[in-house]
Nucleic acid binder design. Structure first.
Lengths: 236, 236
DNA sequence: CGGCCTGTTGATCTGTTTCAATTTGGGTGG
DNA sequence: CCACCCAAATTGAAACAGATCAACAGGCCG
């Protein structure tokens, strides 16, 4: 694990600062954060930490995609989330992490030692406020995912997943309708509670129905988003 | 909806104060909380609020069981949680609630107007700290539930559910192994992602295997908790 | 060039749902 | 107090979605 001390200007030039928690700090507070942060690169498929590890570090994803997962004793896996740049990682008010975090592709993280981070929380209340707001958004997303896993069929699950990725991609200014899937079919399957085969079959069904195009397995073009919305079936 | 102004001494005599968020306040801070709280009774099956309602109130459950749920457009329902006395309700940092909250049985709530509650948060930082810690515990539970919904079979799901209730009942000092189920089979089914019939069948299987006894549908005796633990399959 | 990992497709199998019929139990009114 | 009523729970039989098992294609890297 390579941890590099961050140069003094990292935060100022960080292009995801507004979307990350750091965004609540104003220019004269920023150096305080800068002082406790380090950068870390994680290679594809490498773990950031494992479920059960002592939770002594907090992270901010600045590049790449991080996969969160939990395992059953016999090896069945549930992916509980995918983190993208701007996402916060490591909020654990027990002493140990509740899930494993691994890099899907080449990942870069901002690393905060827990003690120092908590000191900053006390110093800057708006920081804690922001964190609570984050946590509560994550809770809402988790509940959407409960609905997906508990009550949706295969097609509905995949549709919801693609829309979710689409929404997040749009926030980060991608070409509308073009989606990049850094994760494998197996990762997707473990996220939406299916098998690789069913995910694959469902993709081909949606292609047959002209809802999607798949120039390559990791590149999706959403041709008829309204059909996906319909399938996702959210009540609004 | 009946909202009763609370008498001056409510909080002092509240028997769930230690387990609720209010527990972080010391005796001289308590009156400040008392000043903004009201009591509310909710009859069985009545809604506290609906998904989408403006989130202008926060609650603390002091008696009974509250069911949280989300619906799909066609009526399929996912129960996202059951709240018991001491549980906090209404943490929503959007303007509207992300789920519906309904009384399972006779429920009593402490009601906090959002504005006033937030003012208290600013005034007592340890209050906000506690809330963040709650949120992060809930997040951890939600992830357990994702694992359950996404990767467990019917028997494993029911086992996990009963163990969860058991753990919570033990915290509140019940006779070990005796469980009360205030919710219906249908509520359970919608919580663990099954149908009423499958829940019922799985109960009878567990009774046949002498893991449980069912003196009545709402009263469970756990005879062999180790079998349930085994079925739940948590990795520890 | 060859091997391997990922993805796709096909055939079969199984756990859970669905549909349908009973049974049980708690609450209500006579 | 008892009989009735209705919702909830249980049980059975049939259907189905998705899993499992298996084969094969394609791209990438050594």
């Amino acid at each position: 694990m390579v941890v590099v001390r961050a140069p003094g200007s990292v935060c100022e030039t960080c292009d995801i600062r507004e979307t990350a928690i750091c965004g609540v700090l104003n220019p004269d507070e920023l150096p305080r954060l800068n002082a406790i942060v380090a950068a870390q690169n994680v290679a594809p498929q490498q773990a950031v930490f494992f479920e059960g590890d002592p939770a002594d570090t907090l992270y901010n994803v600045t590049r790449g995609c991080v996969r969160l997962s939990k395992m059953l004793a016999d090896g069945r896996r549930q992916v509980t989330g995918f983190l993208l740049p701007g996402d916060f990682l490591g909020l654990a008010y027990y002493e140990s992490y509740a899930y494993t975090a691994e890099a899907v592709d080449a990942v870069r993280l901002c690393v905060f030692p827990r003690e120092k981070f908590q000191a900053l929380l006390t110093e800057f209340p708006q920081f804690e406020r922001r964190l609570l707001s984050r946590a509560s958004n994550e809770l809402a997303s988790a509940q959407d995912q409960l609905l997906l896993l508990g009550r949706k069929g295969a097609k509905e699950k995949l549709a919801s997943f693609l829309l979710l990725l689409g929404r997040r991609a749009r926030l980060r200014g991608t070409v509308d309708g073009a989606l990049d899937l850094p994760m494998t079919r197996n990762d997707i399957a473990d996220y939406i509670g299916l098998t690789t085969e069913t995910v694959s079959r469902t993709f081909t069904k949606l292609v047959d129905e002209a809802v999607l195009e798949l120039p390559s397995p990791q590149h999706v073009l959403i041709k008829r988003p309204e059909v996906l919305e319909d399938l996702a079936g959210e009540f609004h």
